[in-house]
Design a protein around this nucleic acid. Structure first.
Lengths: 196, 196
DNA sequence: CGTTTGGTGGACCGACCGGTCAACAATTGC
DNA sequence: GCAATTGTTGACCGGTCGGTCCACCAAACG
């Protein structure tokens, strides 16, 4: 009874997400969004609401996708300890260093908006807690597998690992060269995940 | 031969710095800067140049000031190991949690602008390298004092400590409660600075 | 005290911002 | 094929942006 959409909604969200990722929220204009999405302003508004709502949708797409990757990475490794090492090293796993300089969209958004935007703050907390829980689960598994001592609290260890990882993301954003970043990641992994 | 300035330049820079600190670069308008500085637009331009230059000046004021604090903190402690612990714990040393939520101006600026603004990137690298050198010096001192093992590289350890600290800053920005932040800081300090 | 010099501040500018809307196009049900 | 409905588009809107300019003014000097 009506005209069907002429675009792939997920594809548009991904393009918009990349734009916000590269330039940040405030520095991305509606014209930028029109350009990368290939849609007109009206279509964008009709389908996704205003800039803020569109941003939240893109952010959610990002957290869902990377949360999925994380879950897969943590659960697919034969040994949980190896997965935890890979988790900490992740910010340095970037041959060209391009992704490291781009950073993590959730972290970027937290730094830019969390103090003034309750929705972004809520998404940051949600993501942070989900990630902590996922990592803590793997810490527990590593304990069960005899690779980590029993006397540490999995959740506390997970928080320390997450902090270390985010610190590495920050160092990547300062343009630190990839070799130094890798070395630092290795040092952190060795200190926080002993027994290997 | 001419009319003298009617304002204290340093006081204006500090007010401007706080505004950028609270709201970020893009989200701060010239009107905001006029309000917090108490000056007219013309005076602001005459004295400091355009918004970007004013921002760089405020950023430099911040890095100079906090660099000075850091140097004092690291050198005044009787034992270098204690100073290093305090360095890692710093992001959690904030009773109300307000400063933690505000974060670090240099980190905020890096996340918002480093990918697009070469001046900010350069300042980030400069600060990062200076901080690493300062911390590495204290690591060396802690080794001399017999509080840290001799077999670790001071610079590599300094980078790991800096990453841990910045990771804690990030967690503070997500609104993580201060007790949990403190506990995580303690965990990181214990793992990265053993022998205590 | 008058002239000169530079500081001050707000009116003003063009550009661009996010957002709206009406005319038009494509599809469906009858 | 025609009416109804929804998607699409870009011209257009008021507001705000960063930045400029100039009339005014306070201090310094002869």
């Amino acid at each position: 009874m009506a005209r069907p959409r002429q675009f792939d909604e997920e594809q548009v969200i991904r393009a918009v997400r990349d734009q916000f990722w590269d330039a940040g929220y405030a520095a991305t204009s509606l014209e930028d969004l029109v350009r990368v999405s290939g849609l007109g302003k009206g279509s964008l508004y009709g389908a996704f609401g205003d800039k803020h709502r569109l941003f939240l949708k893109a952010l959610r797409e990002y957290t869902d996708t990377s949360g999925g990757y994380l879950r897969e990475m943590l659960t697919s490794a034969p040994r949980a300890l190896d997965a935890l090492r890979a988790f900490v090293m992740a910010p340095a796993n970037d041959p060209g260093g391009a992704a490291a300089r781009r950073g993590c969209l959730m972290a970027n958004s937290t730094y830019e908006l969390a103090t003034s935007d309750p929705d972004v703050l809520a998404e940051a907390r949600r993501t942070y807690e989900a990630t902590t829980a996922l990592v803590a689960e793997s810490v527990g598994r590593a304990q069960d597998e005899g690779d980590l001592p029993r006397d540490v609290d999995p959740v506390e260890t997970a928080r320390a690992l997450l902090a270390a990882q985010q610190g590495l993301v920050f160092m990547g954003r300062t343009g630190l060269d990839i070799d130094t970043l890798t070395a630092t990641a290795r040092t952190l992994a060795a200190k926080l995940l002993p027994d290997g």
